[in-house]
Design a protein around this nucleic acid. Structure first.
Lengths: 341, 341
DNA sequence: GTTAGCACTCCTCTCGAACGAGTGCTAAAC
DNA sequence: GTTTAGCACTCGTTCGAGAGGAGTGCTAAC
C-alpha cells in the first residue's frame, strides 16, 4: 500500500535511526543520496508516513523515528540480508572450526559468540530432549536417608538431584529397582519416560519392591526440572551500552527480567520455527517494551530442537542479526547431528 | 591515637554518610544528639581528622566523606554488631527452618537470601572438596568415540564431562578400568585422588588395559575444573540501585567483572578464615575500587570449606552485613555437617 | 508533482544571578 | 585552655532568560 518512494524513505529513516539513535530529519535523508528528492518533498512524505502510523515524532521540531509498525514493515518488506559481512563471516568460520566435545558446550559457545558479534544479549535454549533417550539411570545412596539420582541421556547430557529416601528401604531393594528401571527404560525417549515409567515398570516394581509409591515419586521428581538448566544467557551487560538504556532504572528492570530463568524460558520457547522477529510490545513483557527479540530455531533431522535468540533495543540491526542467526542455525545442524547420529 | 571525641565524630560521619550517601556537615552531626558539641567544635575536629587522612572533602564548601582509611578505622574500631535486627533475625530463622536436600542448594539459597536482605551482591564459594571423597566413578560410552564421565562425591556432588575416547578401546576394557578405579579409589579424598590415581591404580592398569596413558589423561581431565561450578552469584543488579553507581559506565565494568567466574573465584577464594573486610583498593581490582567486599568462611568440623561474600559500595552497611555473615556462617556448620557427618 | 522560502516550534546550551550548605577564622565566653 | 557564636567566604546547585539551531509545515512559485 506504500508507494515505492515512501518505502525508500521509510527504509532510509530506519537505517539512519538504527545507526545514530537520533531522530532523523528530512535534510539528512536528502543528503544521503539514495533518495534523490529535496528535503521538502521528503518532508511531505514523512508527514504522510506519520499519519499512516509508520513514523513518530518525539516533539514538533524534531526529526522522525520509526514506530513499532514502522519497524514491522521494515522487517517484513524492506531489509535485505543474505551474505554476512566479511568480518562476521570469518568469526563464524572460526566458530565452526573449533572442536567441541559436547552438545551443550556448542550451544553455550554459540551464545557467547553471538553476543560478542552483535553487542546485544543472546538467549539460547539448549537442545530439546525430543529424540533424546535414556542412556542410564543410577541411584547412589549417600547416607541412610539420602541418595543422589543421576540420569544420563544418549547425547551425553547428565542430570542429577539429591533426594530423600523413605525410611527402611534396603540397599538391595534400591539396587533391584535401579536394575529394573535400566533394563526396561534404557533407550526410551525422554518424553515418553514418564508414561512408560508406570505402564512398563509399575506392575513388576510393585511385586518386588516395598515403598513402591515413594520411590516412583522420586524417579518422577528427577525427571522434572531438566529444562531450567538449558537456558544460556550471554552479554546481558551489553544492554548497558545502548544509548536508549542509559537510564539505570530502565536497564535494571531488563536485567532483572534476564535473571529470571523461567520467564526467559517462556519467552524463548514460544518461538516459531524458522526465524521470528518480535518487536516491542509483541514480546508481551512490560520490561522489554523497547526491545526486540529475534529468534531462530535449529533442527536435527528436520525437527526443531532448540532456539537461539538475540535481544536488543527495538532500534536493532535487524539485517545483520537475522543474517547471523540464519547462518548459524542452518550450519548448526550438521554439527549437532554428529552426536545424535 | 584518636581522642574519644574524634572517634565519636568519625563514627557519626561514617554512619550518616552510609545512610545518606551525601557529604556530612558539622551542623547535621551536632543535631543528631550523640555528639553534644557545637558545630564549630565539630568543625575543628573534622579539620583535624581530614589532616590525619580519615576524611575527605569533595570540594571546599561541602561536608566531609570518609576516606578508605576512615572506613578502615570505622570497621576495625568503631562498629558494633552482635544481635541482628528483628526483621533480619526472622528471615534467618525462615532460612534455617527450610528443608533443603543438597549442600549446594543450601549454599546457593543462602546467596540469594543474603542478596535480598542486604540489597548488595552476594558471591558465594561452594563447599570445598576438602574432606570430600570419591563415592563413585563412571564412564558411559555414548558413541564409538565419545563417552560421558561422571564423578559422584560422598556429599552428593556430581561432576560430569563428555570426553573423546582413544581409537580402538573395547567396551570391556573400559568396564575393567572403571571397575578398577572404583575398587581402588572409592572413599579416597578428592584432593588425594590425583596422586593416588597413579600410585595405586597405575601399575595394575598398565597390565590390564591398553591405551593406559590416554585413559589416565581423561580421568585426570575430569578431575580438573570442578571448581568453576562452585561460585554462586546473586543480586548483581542490586549494584544498579546504589546512587554512587548511577553512572552506567562505572556499573558496566563492575557487572562485567562479576561475569568472569575465574576472577570472582580468585577474589573470593583469597579470603582469610573468619570475617574479613576489604575496602576499596584493598581488593586489587580497578573495577571495584569503590566497592568493599566482606567475606566470611564457613566450616565443617573446624575446617574452613567455603566462603560467603558480600560486595557493595565502600559506603556499605558494614555493621549489618558483618552481623549477618557472622550469624549465617556460624549456623551453617551444623546444617552442612548433616551431609558430611 | 516538485521544490524554494520562510515563519514557527521547541529542544538544548550557556550564562549569570540567587541561593544555600558548609567551611575556616576570629574573638568572645566559659 | 577549651568551647562556641559570629561572620565572611567558597563553591556547587538551581532557575530563568536568551541565543542558537535543528527541523517542521505551509505557501507559493517552478
Amino acid at each position: 500500500m506504500l508507494t515505492e518512494r515512501q518505502r525508500m524513505i521509510l527504509n532510509a529513516i530506519v537505517d539512519d535511526y538504527i545507526r545514530s539513535a537520533e531522530p532523523v530529519g528530512s535534510r539528512s535523508i536528502s543528503k544521503r543520496g539514495e533518495v534523490t528528492y529535496s528535503p521538502a518533498t521528503i518532508r511531505n512524505e514523512m508527514s504522510d508516513l506519520e499519519e499512516l502510523g509508520f513514523l513518530e515524532q518525539p516533539h514538533t521540531s524534531a526529526g522522525r523515528i520509526p514506530s513499532h509498525k514502522g519497524y514491522r514493515y521494515y522487517v517484513d518488506h524492506l531489509i535485505q540480508f543474505g551474505t554476512l559481512q566479511p568480518y562476521d563471516s570469518m568469526q563464524m568460520k572460526h566458530f565452526f572450526a573449533e572442536k567441541l566435545t559436547a552438545t551443550e558446550q556448542v550451544i553455550q559457545h554459540a551464545a557467547t559468540i553471538l553476543a560478542n558479534m552483535t553487542n546485544y544479549t543472546s538467549i539460547v535454549l539448549g537442545p530439546e530432549m525430543f529424540n533424546t533417550s535414556l542412556r542410564h539411570f543410577q541411584l547412589l545412596p549417600l547416607t541412610e536417608t539420602t541418595a543422589v539420582a543421576i540420569i544420563v541421556t544418549n547425547t551425553g547430557h547428565v542430570e542429577n538431584k539429591t533426594v530423600t529416601l523413605p525410611e527402611g528401604v534396603s540397599p538391595s531393594e534400591l539396587e533391584q529397582m535401579v536394575h529394573l528401571l535400566n533394563h526396561k527404560l534404557a533407550g526410551v525417549p525422554l518424553y515418553k519416560l514418564k508414561s512408560q515409567l508406570f505402564s512398563e515398570v509399575g506392575d513388576e516394581m510393585k511385586r518386588h519392591v516395598n515403598h513402591y509409591e515413594e520411590l516412583m515419586g522420586i524417579v518422577e521428581n528427577v525427571l522434572e526440572g531438566e529444562s531450567e538448566n538449558r537456558v544460556f544467557l550471554s552479554g546481558a551487560t551489553n544492554m548497558l551500552t545502548q544509548p536508549e538504556f542509559k537510564d539505570v532504572d530502565k536497564v535494571k528492570t531488563i536485567l532483572d527480567l534476564l535473571d529470571e530463568t523461567p520467564t526467559l524460558l517462556k519467552m524463548i520457547s514460544s518461538a516459531q520455527n524458522g526465524i521470528q522477529v518480535r518487536i516491542g510490545t509483541e514480546n508481551n513483557h512490560q520490561a522489554i517494551n523497547n526491545c526486540s527479540l529475534i529468534t531462530a530455531t535449529y533442527s536435527i533431522e528436520g525437527q526443531a530442537v532448540g532456539t537461539i535468540g538475540i535481544l536488543g533495543p527495538t532500534r536493532m540491526e535487524y539485517g545483520k542479526v537475522i543474517g547471523l542467526l540464519d547462518f548459524l542455525s542452518k550450519n548448526l545442524t550438521p554439527v549437532l547431528e554428529r552426536w545424535y547420529k
